[in-house]
Design a protein around this nucleic acid. Structure first.
Lengths: 120, 120
DNA sequence: CGGGATCCCGGGAGATACTG
DNA sequence: CAGTATCTCCCGGGATCCCG
């Protein structure tokens, strides 16, 4: 039932745990979801994910980049510089799973979520 | 881009973070994956997921049960008792996402995983 | 057999302030 | 503009032992 796999020196008993080790955590899937629609600048991501802190956002982006899911492109060498993030080809292979998770989240929200005003 | 949702008093900025809050973590998707094929006893799960500790397994099962994904059925009242876990109807709604994650994990393993002997 | 109690640790994540 | 540098807190998860 799922063969053992070794990736980057770490051993996984099944492919599910491998996948969750790469895209698990509180923010990674959220970031990937926001990059699905196209490239985004750092501050765009911050505004679209208000609950994340600067430090956590840049840390998660770095980890996604290290795992080859996200590409980081820098424009300019003197401040103000411009940095753009987008999904790599490998990152895009995760989109089907991402959408399946999103669909399930929508189902859960419809089923047991309480409605909330958009604006205060 | 994804409306705010409140579930169990917690607020989520998008459905992805809601989903990850329910099935995230190191073990929940792995457990659900092993329950996909049918009901399992506690010790069956332990043997199929050797890397998990007893305490963590029972804790994760309890949380899955609290969120309505897993059903726990007890047979007998004097030790040795028999406890069986299976997916609820709601838990089964997560299977498509689970399989999408699994497929992606397989893809990752094929792409960057190193092969490993099954037996020592 | 299927857990609970207890103790513990590492790292994920936040708050605040600062910088090339 | 796009981050770092610290410091801190919290808690998911592990280790060990025990129990109905």
């Amino acid at each position: 039932m799922g063969k053992n796999v070794v990736v980057n020196g770490k051993m996984y008993a099944c492919t599910i745990s491998l996948a969750m080790d790469i895209v698990g955590g509180k923010w990674k899937t959220v970031i990937l979801h926001h990059l699905k629609s196209g490239e985004k600048r750092y501050n765009e991501l911050r505004k679209e994910i208000p609950a994340i802190t600067e430090m956590t956002l840049s840390l998660q982006l770095k980890q996604l980049e290290e795992n080859g899911l996200v590409n980081r492109v820098v424009y300019g060498d003197k401040p103000p510089i411009k940095v753009v993030y987008n999904l790599t080809e490998f990152g895009r292979t995760f989109i089907p799973a991402l959408e399946a998770i999103d669909q399930w989240g929508i189902l859960v929200a419809d089923k047991i979520g309480e409605p909330v005003q958009e604006n205060i």
